[in-house]
């Protein structure tokens, strides 16, 4: 288990971390991008049909990922969720701990602010430690990434071992590298094809 504390974790660039994650995905792993900049950077890192980009429903990246993980236990599933979003749905960590899907890996993107609305600090500014919260909810495999190399190590560990896993990421103040195309019906259609669920002749 990593012993990195929230205080000592390096503040990293979300887009760089997202690219590092995507570069490690070789087995059609599902990735659920939470509302706002979490999914903007996932989209900008290069669209994959196994990506789902939320549009609203703040706080539901982890529940959506849990649903995917239950439906397809052989596929690894990642949830990319912001700290502000997670604060809206903290109870879902207990649900994940109780259901204990072996194939779910949660990334908490913690920049301490609501970046998309102007950088206001979250109510967790007093020092909420999301990895400690996750452990308290029963997610024993929860760790802060010390730096980029440690993040890559934790992702590899998540891919290679049974979860559920949670990786805490402290972020710097840099904004997103791009913006997701807001076409939800198309996103859903592509994702269902990416999950091997939908087969259709309506291709081009």
């Amino acid at each position: 288990m990593s012993v990195t504390t929230a205080h000592n974790a390096k503040r990293m660039y979300r887009f760089d971390l997202t690219k590092r994650l995507v570069a490690k995905l070789h087995r059609d792993e599902a990735v659920i991008g939470g509302i706002g900049h979490s999914n903007f950077d996932l989209f900008t890192a290069g669209h994959r049909p196994q990506n789902f980009y939320m549009l609203g429903s703040m706080g539901l990246a982890i529940p959506i990922a849990l649903g995917v993980a239950i439906a397809q236990p052989q596929r690894k599933v990642f949830a990319l969720e912001g700290d502000g979003s997670l604060l809206m749905q903290l109870g879902c960590l207990s649900t994940v701990a109780t259901q204990a899907p072996k194939n779910l890996i949660i990334l908490v993107m913690d920049n301490g602010t609501y970046q998309i609305t102007g950088g206001q600090v979250t109510p967790a500014a007093g020092g909420t430690d999301f990895v400690a919260v996750a452990r308290g909810c029963g997610l024993t495999s929860a760790a802060w990434a010390a730096d980029e190399a440690d993040f890559e190590r934790l992702v590899e560990q998540g891919l290679a071992t049974d979860g559920p896993h949670l990786i805490g990421l402290k972020l710097d103040e840099q904004g997103p590298a791009g913006q997701t195309e807001r076409d939800p019906a198309q996103i859903r259609d592509r994702f269902m094809r990416g999950m091997g669920v939908k087969k259709s002749k309506l291709v081009t």
Binding site: I32, P63, I64, L66, G67, V68, Q72
Partner: peptide, 11 residues
Amino acid sequence: GIVCGAVMAGM
């Protein structure tokens, strides 16, 4: 959220 994720993944 859980139902939506599962439905999109075939359950």
